[in-house]
Design a protein around this nucleic acid. Sequence first.
DNA 1: CGCCAGGCTTCTA
DNA 2: TAGAAGCATGGC
Length: 272
Amino acid sequence: MIDYNDGAVVLSGNDAFSPERTFGCGQAFRFGENEGCCEGIAFGKRLRVRSEGDRTILSCSREDFESVWKDYFDLGRDYSAINIDRDDAFLAKAAAFGRGIRILRQQPWEALCSFIISQCNNIPRIKGIIAKLCGLYGEPADGGFAFPTPERIAALPDDGLDAIRAGYRAPYILGAARAVASGKLDLPALTALPTDDARRVLLSVNGVGKKVADCTLLYGLGHTDAFPVDVWMKRALSEIYPGGFDEKRYGGDAGIIQQYIFYYARETKLNV
DNA sequence: CGCCAGGCTTCTA
DNA sequence: TAGAAGCATGGC
């Protein structure tokens, strides 16, 4: 059920949306905790969102909720309908642990750029680099900054990213931005392609390997069958499923399953 | 100080 | 086709 008050949208009877877990599970880097709220900027708009019992309260207008945040939080999907193998006790536990996580549908360029930055990096530093990138080259937005457009970054000289201290990733970012800005890389078009074809296109970008491509597919392009495997996932999968884990079995829910496993592994350090 | 971080490219055998 | 080195920086 949805209530619209002035300046707020209240979702009730809803235990399947946890902003804290959604932003705490490492899929987005521009939201943080502030006065008991998750707060950040996406789509050039600031949002504060918090849960209160079985209600979720978003500080936004009805129009913005309908046009932006509803899709951003993937609220059209029923996560409780995901069918977990009856004999997979670990996965049931991980899914319960991560209940309320939504797979964010971020802007494609933001997802690609963010996960290029994420490679071989730690989360606090990833957030710091992205904050600097936005502060320097993003348009002012609601007292903060929007994520910079690829065009803005593409126009920079080769040393234009020195100040964000991204290290060896800087040329990757510039190259990707120039590919997008020139029209050579059409990110939105990848949404309509089969996942494997879209992945092939992403892999042609210098600095983008399978992990970054899969994160872009999952968090930025709506390909929820993508199944990013990073060091944590590798560790978890080899410990829990020594015989291998067949994510294709979960089809378009594989990406959500991945998020449950990843979140559980990181939060518990895998004390199964 | 040393180890490591939601990897990728390049070089080598 | 697999494995290792090198990469740039800073959190811990």
